[in-house]
Design a protein around this nucleic acid. Structure first.
Lengths: 186, 186
DNA sequence: GTTAGAGTAGACAAGTTTGTATACTTTGAC
DNA sequence: GTCAAAGTATACAAACTTGTCTACTCTAAC
């Protein structure tokens, strides 16, 4: 693995584990075994490294989600795949996303919560991307745009609730509970 | 206001705004206008101050929530009051909770996400307290314990989803959307 | 008026932070 | 084999971190 990727990999893991401000550059260097000059060769500042991490996390998340839902052939099947994927993640069956500690984007936003902060904006954009992905996927199964949008809103709302509850309440059944709610209402 | 309360008040505001690690003791002192010795007279360490902040936030949250829902006389009315309260909060109509920046307990947990960290445990306990409050409130309106538990789970899941979505997606309508979901399924 | 408790102001210690600079080594392309 | 690019190791600067300490002041009770 090239040094730049190694640095992002290491930082992503440490940032997700302990938060951004709590993890110093030196800690990242010691863990990755990379020299300081190499880091500042690839990234102008710590902030640039953080931004690269957010981009990488977004990539991994979208890859995982789209793969998990790709074989859905109906709305109800999409819902099932979607929440099963979340269930896998919060129960640590998805290696690409690391040991579950809630939503990386929410955790990161909590440390950069000003609306005009570029890191917050990156996190917001990720969430919008997920929303667009869901809406596009669902639109294949129905012609009713309103219904499609409403279901997207509901999936998003429940997804955020699942991730949050699984993290802070340690409710590892959250995804299955959420699936039930939608199955009752759809 | 006595100095101890002033320190908690100031810290709570700054921690909620910028995160815990990002806010130094000196910043808190400069903002509150309190001397360093006074702070360390009241709190042994920064961690003790953080813990006092979590306790205070829990108090304010529970007070606000229980007041907002106290006049509910039925399950559906409770749901209405509950989500209207959330709607007030995320749209900055609740002074006691400060300018909305997501869930203080989630934001804080993100910086102390080890299960055995006492701060994480405090946040977890707060969430369990909210759950107990909801379950107790609902139990007054029905004799079906299973239904009561299920609805509690749903309310919790949607509450977390609402707070998260309102924060990171800046979806200020999230609470009203969530109310709709439950009205469809109940 | 005296006195004890609480607060102020700020210097200080010891360690950490991000980021730069220097001197040396490895590696891969030609 | 040469040479440039990339990496290593580490010292260093400047600022910041938490927490301690000293000397002074204010305030309220008696």
């Amino acid at each position: 693995m090239d040094k730049k990727s190694l640095l992002i990999e290491t930082s992503l893991k440490l940032f997700y584990q302990d938060g951004i401000h709590a993890v110093g550059i030196n800690h990242i260097l010691a863990t990755s075994g990379v020299a300081k000059k190499t880091l500042y060769n690839h990234f102008e500042t710590k902030e640039a490294l953080i931004q690269a991490c957010v981009i990488e996390r977004d990539k991994r998340f979208m890859n995982w989600l789209s793969q998990a839902c790709q074989h859905a052939h109906s709305t109800s099947q999409f819902i099932e795949f979607f929440f099963n994927a979340l269930d896998d993640w919060i129960n640590n069956r998805v290696q690409a996303l690391g040991e579950f500690r809630g939503c990386f984007f929410v955790n990161t936003s909590a440390e950069y919560s000003d609306l005009d902060n570029p890191i917050f904006q990156q996190c917001l954009q990720h969430k919008l991307k997920v929303k667009t992905y869901i809406e596009n996927s669902l639109s294949a199964f129905t012609n009713d745009i309103g219904e499609c949008q409403q279901l997207t809103d509901q999936l998003i709302l429940l997804k955020e609730g699942v991730i949050n509850s699984a993290f802070i309440m340690q409710d590892k059944q959250a995804a299955l509970k959420a699936m039930k709610i939608l199955k009752l209402s759809v």
